[in-house]
Amino acid sequence: MTATILPHPLLSLAVFVVWILLSNHVSVGVFVLAAVIAVAVPSMTAVYWPGRPSVRRPMVILEYAAIVLYDIVVSNIEVAKLVLFRRGDSLNSTFITVPLDLESPEAVTVLAGTITMTPGTLTADYDHEGHTLMVHCLNLKDEAEAVAQIKQRYESRLLRIFQ
């Protein structure tokens, strides 16, 4: 029953909240329209979203978001220092390969986005066969350390959230 009306409860909730924020004032009409859209849009587009990602442990999600926000600020300061005070040629930029333990495509997407937003690293490509991410480092000090940091700081938490 809920599967036919609300194929994706989290998506419906997101649409509901975003619609209210977009209309930017609170009244009964806005709530009704938001509810209608939150039910109609996911059920009409359900054909394109066959799988339903399992998301668990909201506390870990909050912890993850806080860590990522902190890292974004720190990485910005780091990258700003590198950009302003170092010659471009003297930066040791290379590609590193990060093997993945995550299975679901949503989790891999979140990890790739997180890597792009955090200290001096940028996801360039995803290898389907080897199940690895190709990550470009702006200034690499130690490859094993960088991979280990990505794995234990982000991937272990994502494993707990998505599995």
């Binding site: 974004i72 600020v73 990485s75 910005n76 990258v79 700003a80 950009v83 471009g88 040629d89 930066l91 930029s93 792009t116 937003m117 001096g120 940028l122 360039a124 470009h136 702006l138």
Partner: peptide, 17 residues
């Protein structure tokens, strides 16, 4: 910055913040 992959680092991070 001297090449495209390095150039990608600047805008994607700094500009977002």
């Amino acid at each position: 910055l001297p090449d495209t992959m390095r150039r990608l680092h600047g805008p994607t991070k700094a500009t977002t913040l």
